[in-house]
Design a protein around this nucleic acid. Structure first.
Length: 351
DNA sequence: CAGGCCTACGGTGTCTGCGA
DNA sequence: TCGCAGACACCGTAGGCCTG
């Protein structure tokens, strides 16, 4: 953390049974020890929320959450210890050890018996000045040798703080001031919610009624209500999830239908393939058979060609022989025997 | 006459008691 | 057990009165 404030001192002046008290914390921690009802809770559990936001309503003051004791009681008390008029101061000093810086927040309260309401003012000291070190919240008057502490009025305090801090008169303004200087929440509601959580967690119910349901109720009550802006992204995501789920269901349905179709189509394709395969096998056998026949025919053609060649050769031989015989016939025709023959024939005819 | 004080009033938050 | 209405106290603001 760039700047971390640790509670360093807590002080009370004229509040409840305290005249002027100071609690010094060690490394942000404080242990209070005392008998039951000795005021431990009032001292710290009532005091700290009150100084953090200045809310004086009874249930904020009482660690048990009752409304029996109003702020007037803590200021003026009852019975013998009662005061008619009292000005109180409560403050918390924070330290940033790394930077050696101090920040003090506090409230002033003025109450008068028989006058309704309590005056309130809140302050922060931001210039490193420290209460009871650099200045006090009261004026000292010495009457008859005894020191009397007269708490500063609001104006006196404002004058003393001067430029080194701020004094406000409204509770809401004080709450914003403390948030600004001490916590730095960008959103004022967040600071309010932090204080609500603090109030819930201080509840003594935690130890008195130690049941899981009680703890659950306290923690649930302490949780801030989610704003619409914060819920919107979740709402959108849930909406998208619903849409996606619907889409998924639809796709799943489509996929199942597609599976059925694909199965049927597969069967159909297999049947087609089987049929085509049978045709191929049949054609293959047919082709083989024809090839064998072709070879046989080619063999016959070859032997026929040889016969043709041989026949042609023989034809040529016969033609030659024919021509030779025809030559011999021609020669013989011109022979005298033939003409004698012919004379003989003529004689026979004459005869 | 300016600033402080007081009072009234509307709004808000919390608690409590009552009835379903 | 839950929701609702009423009570209560406080906050913030406005306006009038008081006082140094």
């Amino acid at each position: 953390m760039p700047q971390r404030w640790k509670m360093n001192r807590a002080g009370l002046l004229n509040f409840w049974y305290y005249d002027d008290a100071e609690f010094v914390l060690e490394d942000g921690r404080l242990i209070l020890r005392g008998a039951n009802s000795s005021g431990k809770s009032v001292t710290m559990q009532s005091f700290i929320p009150l100084v953090l936001d200045g809310d004086k309503r009874p249930w904020r003051l009482d660690p048990f959450g009752s409304r029996d004791r109003r702020i007037e009681y803590y200021l003026l008390l009852d019975g013998e210890d009662g005061h008619n008029e009292r000005t109180a101061y409560l403050y918390l000093e924070f330290q940033d050890a790394d930077r050696e810086r101090y920040l003090t927040i506090g409230i002033g309260l003025r109450g008068r018996r028989n006058v309704a309401g309590v005056n309130f003012w809140g302050f922060v000291i931001t210039d490193n000045r420290r209460i009871n070190k650099d200045f006090k919240l009261y004026r000292s008057e010495h009457g008859s040798g005894e020191e009397t502490k007269i708490p500063l009025t609001r104006n006196e305090l404002a004058a003393r703080i001067g430029e080194g801090g701020t004094v406000v008169t409204e509770q809401g303004e004080y709450e914003r001031l403390v948030n600004k200087h001490l916590f730095g929440y960008a959103d004022e509601n967040s600071y309010g919610e932090l204080l609500d959580l603090l109030i819930q967690l201080r509840s003594p119910k935690l130890s008195k009624d130690f049941k899981p349901t009680t703890i659950y109720e306290i923690l649930t009550g302490a949780l801030p209500t989610l704003q619409e802006d914060e819920l919107r992204p979740l709402e959108e995501v849930l909406g998208e999830m619903d849409e996606i789920a619907d889409h998924l269901a639809e796709l799943e349905m489509h996929r199942q239908e597609a599976d059925k179709l694909q199965k049927a189509y597969q069967t159909y394709n297999e049947a087609l393939l089987l049929s085509a395969s049978r045709e191929v096998l049949f054609r293959h056998k047919e082709r083989h058979k024809l090839a064998v026949e072709l070879d046989a025919i080619k063999g016959k053609i070859a032997s026929s060609k040889a016969l043709i060649t041989k026949a042609e050769h023989e034809q040529n031989e016969f033609l030659k022989e024919e021509r030779s015989i025809e030559g011999r016939i021609s020669t013989l025709a011109q022979h005298e025997a033939i003409s004698t023959e012919d004379e003989l024939q003529r004689v026979k005819e004459q005869i």
